[in-house]
Every structure is written in structure tokens, then in C-alpha cells.
Nucleic acid binder design. Structure first.
Length: 292
DNA sequence: CACTTGACCTGTCCGC
DNA sequence: TGCGGACAGGTCAAGT
């Protein structure tokens, strides 16, 4: 499930592979994958040159010289994969997690002037790709309400704690997953950072002491930075722009680790519970539920 | 307004 | 081997 580090990894790949190239044609299956009118696509995408690739929260933004932007949300199983004219990525084909493209999960294909193809694959069809005037991107509903970028300089412990106040009666896990509190955290990094801060995910926000919230702030930045360094987490579907897996999951302390020892307490096993309607992984020894 | 739950989808896994 | 059901989880809409 692509979260901030996964989308950032895709962005870093695409900025090298796409910028300066032109879209010469486009194929898509249903309006679900690419809900723009054929007129908009023909006018603002076909013939357009990619000028930049940006990210906000879990949203990928491919800027075009038509002053339009391809706005992409991968949701849970979306993939953006670049394939050269030989139908392989920039690396060795055996490095790729996925086979020949298109496959049955392919929703959109953008054919480029160098005969490479950018594929948007999405097994569960929750993701979407939309063409929006670049100047309008900050005005779409999601952008208006999404919280601060956790790795930007203006995100401080004070900002984090302040924004958590709007969710003080909910569980701390639901609060860090709330994109209006801060941007980019999903299920993997919520569990990883809460373990790092030794906070039980079902603790109400108002019951978490200030110093633990500060610790959580530090842990969120730590796991996100480490994951970007490792190319994100490939749990099931996620691949980068070259179709390759990320390796954060090898460094995970609790996520999908149920039944294995807690790194802090070899005598205690990680357990899986349900919090905020999500599978949630904790060490029952170092993450103790606190109520006031 | 705060908070929770269901819907959106399809592939995989588990028990029978 | 086949089959039904639970499960995976990002976001929005609708509910309390």
C-alpha cells in the first residue's frame, strides 16, 4: 500500500525517466482509471512534454508543458511503471517484480516519444489518474484539507501536537492515519512509529503524555526517512518506477511480524489486533494501553 | 463538528 | 480440487 515513502520513491524514479519526454498517445480501459474527457486528454496530454514530477502527501503530480498536471493516487494496489521500448525497465529485467506489460491490471498506458511506455496498473481499481490545470491542483478538495508534509522544515513537534488536538478523543492510531493531521502516513508507518514511541495504538490522543507525543514525532520522521532510503516497503503490490521492490519491510520491527519476537523483548511476541478498522501490530510488553 | 462505519474492488488464503 | 468467506487498507460518503 503506497504511503509517503513509496510515492516519493516512484517520484525520484520518474523524475529521471520522464522529464523532457513527450506523450505521443494514450490508451485506457475505463473512465475509472482515467476519468478525463477524450477532449481534455487530446488537447492537454497528447503532445505534452513532462516538465517536473512532484509529490504532495500520497499524491503524485506529473507536470506538463500544457500547464496541466497528471494527478495520480495509487490507493492500495496502484503501480506506475516505466518500460523502455524493449518492454523492460531501466534495470535488468530479472530485477522486476512484475512480468510483461500490459497485464490484466493495466488501466492506462502513456506512450512516449522515445517508444517507452508509462503503465498505470491497479489490481483493485481504487486508484485514479486525472488531468487538472496545474494552477488548480492546490484547489482540489484533498489538497485543501491535507495536513503538513512530515519531512518538511515547517513540521515541528509543536505543529504536530497542535494538529492532534482536533482528534483528541480518538485513538492515536486513527489520528496519525488522518491525512488532515499530517500527510503521508498509512498503516505500515503508523504501526512502526507507534512501536518506536512505545505507545499503544488504542490510547486516546488526550491520554498520551506530551513527551510521548514528541517521541512519536521523532519516530515518524525516522521511519519515513529510513523507508525512503530503502526504496519503500514492498508488502504485496508496491513497485517503484522501474518495477522493482523496496526493502523497508526487511527492517520493519512490528509490521507483519506477528508471532516473532519484539526487538526490545526477545521473550515477548508481536501480536496482531484491530484498531481503527486496520490490522495493527504491537508488542504487548512495550506498548501498554494507558487510560486516564 | 467529532467520530465511526461502509463502500469501492479483486486476488489470495484458509477451512471444509 | 473446488468453494465460500474473510482479509488486505486509502479515501470519501454517509451514518450516529
Amino acid at each position: 500500500m503506497p504511503e509517503l515513502p513509496e510515492v516519493e520513491t516512484v517520484r525520484l524514479g520518474l523524475i529521471k525517466l520522464l522529464v523532457g519526454h513527450t506523450v505521443v498517445s494514450e490508451v485506457h480501459d475505463t473512465p475509472k482509471g482515467f476519468p478525463n474527457s477524450p477532449n481534455d486528454v487530446g488537447q492537454f496530454l497528447i503532445g505534452a512534454k513532462v516538465t517536473d514530477v512532484r509529490r504532495r502527501a500520497k499524491v503524485l503530480l506529473i507536470d506538463l508543458d500544457t500547464d496541466y498536471t497528471l494527478v495520480i493516487h495509487l490507493k492500495m494496489t496502484g503501480q506506475i511503471v516505466y518500460r523502455g521500448a524493449d518492454n523492460f525497465g531501466a534495470g535488468h529485467p530479472n530485477d522486476s517484480l512484475i512480468g510483461r506489460l500490459p497485464d490484466k491490471s493495466t488501466r492506462v498506458q502513456l506512450i512516449l516519444n522515445n517508444n517507452a511506455v508509462l503503465y498505470f496498473n491497479d489490481q483493485r481499481k481504487f486508484g485514479w489518474m486525472r488531468l487538472i490545470p496545474t494552477i488548480e491542483v492546490p484547489n482540489i478538495d484533498f489538497m485543501k484539507k491535507v495536513g503538513p508534509e512530515p519531512l518538511e522544515d515547517d513540521f515541528t513537534p509543536e505543529v504536530f501536537i497542535g494538529r492532534l488536538q482536533r482528534r483528541k478523543n480518538t485513538t492515536i492510531k486513527a489520528a496519525v492515519l488522518d491525512q488532515t493531521v499530517l500527510a503521508g502516513i498509512g498503516n505500515i508507518y503508523a504501526d512502526e512509529s507507534l512501536w518506536g514511541a512505545k505507545i499503544h495504538p488504542e490510547t486516546r490522543v488526550k491520554d498520551v503524555p506530551q513527551n510521548m507525543l514528541k517521541k512519536l514525532f521523532t519516530e515518524i520522521q525516522y521511519v519515513l526517512r529510513l523507508s525512503i532510503e530503502k526504496g519503500g516497503s514492498t508488502d504485496r503490490n508496491y513497485v517503484n518506477a522501474e518495477g522493482k521492490r523496496g526493502s523497508y519491510i526487511d527492517f520493519a520491527r512490528v509490521f507483519r511480524k506477528e508471532g516473532t519476537p519484539c526487538p526490545r523483548h526477545p521473550d515477548t511476541k508481536i501480536i496482531k489486533i484491530k484498531v481503527a478498522a486496520r490490522g495493527t501490530h504491537i508488542c504487548p510488553k512495550c506498548q501498554v494501553l494507558k487510560t486516564v
